[in-house]
Amino acid sequence: MAATAGKGFAARWGVHIAVLLIVIVWTIPTLGILVSSLRDRDQIAVSGWWTALTTSAQTGQGRTEGADAQVEQNGRFVIAGNLLEEDDARVIRSFGTRIQNPTEHEAGTAADLGDGVTLQVNEDGSYEQSSPTAFEGNRGQRIFFEAATPPRFTTENYRTVLFSEGIGRSFINSLTVTIPATIIPILIAAFAAYALAWMKFPGRAILIAVVIGLLVVPLQMSLIPLLKLYNGVGTFFGVPAKTYLGIWLAHTGFGLPFAIYLLRSYIAGLPREIMESARIDGASDFEIFVKIVLPLSFPVLASFAIFQFLWVWNDLLVAMVFLGSGSNQLVLTGKLNALLGSRGGDWEILTTSAFITIIVPLIVFFSLQRYFVRGLLAGSVKGG
């Protein structure tokens, strides 16, 4: 008995540790995207998000003033200025006059440039170039330096993405596609699941087998036939192609098999006594469905809503085929795909855009997650 209890304790802790590891693995990338989306673009380019709270080293370059800025002091000609802007918080650690060696001299020391010419660059960016003879030319001395940059966070990336990159319009397009494409399959599947679970009619077993068989049909195989069917019906009835109606119907068709299967498994497990009592009291099938089955089936409805919402929100293929790729039709995933092609080096734009795409799914998931596990345990409800 003690050995059994020990094994049970170890198994429980093993499950808890495994779940914790899974949560950590899935949370770390999300945290990285969030931190990167709030960082300065220059810091993203030189250091990882895990160094966001530490000082990073960055290289830069500048040029001294030309000969017009020189003044004579104590028999020497001096050019003074600053390599950094007034609001620049960087601290220069070292400098050099060759790009191959930007850390040749330590900040605050005077570097000998030959022929009696010296150059001193201080930590605050101020410099002083001195020569025994007058400087000539309008182009100053180029200076390369390495500077310590304190952590800097900004919301400028979000303003750029939401207002300058057309993400806002794509965000609205995604909501317009996703919300109806989640609600419509639930409405249809709920009626179908109740009929297949509790109503007796000829061919019910065949319909159940067909639904199960459709679960294994790849989306890519049915995409083109469905598009041809929709275009043919649309042409016959005068419905224009590339509309929201088309993509709503497409997502409904792709989501119905799984929705019906999941809901039927749950509804079939509801207590038979409740149904029989309602029928004895004179309730019709519609009344039983609306007043008894739907309230009891809310957990499984919420579970499917999470699956369908996430799948439609992250979809790109169906949206490109049924909605198009115009600027007024492009969904959020399509817009991000375009940004990835044209702005591949701007990591601050990509990370900000990526985090924006997961905000809505996270809100949906955490709002319904308490029903998620209960909804997946289809058939676990028992009568009292």
Rank of each mutant, 00 (worst) to 15 (best):
M1T: 12
G6D: 13
K7V: 13
W13H: 09
V15M: 11
H16S: 08
H16Y: 15
I17L: 10
I22N: 07
W26F: 14
P29R: 05
T30R: 10
Q43W: 02
I44N: 04
A45C: 06
A52F: 06
T55L: 06
G60D: 01
Q61I: 04
R63C: 09
T64Y: 03
G66F: 13
Q73S: 15
F77L: 07
L83D: 01
L84P: 03
A89Q: 12
V91P: 00
V91K: 10
F95G: 02
I99S: 15
N101P: 11
P102C: 09
G114A: 14
V117N: 05
S126D: 07
Y127P: 02
T133C: 08
P150I: 10
P150V: 08
F153A: 00
T155L: 15
N157T: 10
R159T: 14
T160M: 14
E165W: 12
E165T: 10
G168F: 04
F171S: 03
S174C: 06
I188Y: 02
I188R: 01
A192H: 06
F201K: 10
G203N: 04
A205E: 13
I208D: 10
A209Y: 13
L215G: 05
N231A: 14
V233N: 04
G234N: 07
G234D: 04
T235P: 07
G238T: 08
K242D: 11
I247R: 02
F254W: 05
F254M: 01
F258L: 11
Y261R: 01
L262P: 00
L263D: 00
R264Y: 01
A268R: 04
I274V: 13
M275G: 11
E276M: 12
A278E: 09
D285I: 03
F286Y: 15
S297R: 03
F298P: 03
F298I: 15
P299G: 06
F304E: 00
F309T: 00
D315F: 00
L317C: 04
V318R: 01
M320N: 09
V321T: 13
S325D: 14
G326P: 05
S327E: 12
S327W: 11
V331E: 02
T333K: 05
T333G: 04
G334I: 02
L339I: 05
L339A: 01
R343T: 11
G345R: 07
I349S: 01
T351I: 02
T351D: 01
A354D: 04
I356A: 00
I358K: 01
I358T: 08
F365T: 03
L368E: 05
Q369K: 09
L376M: 13
L376A: 08
A378V: 13
V381D: 09
G384V: 12
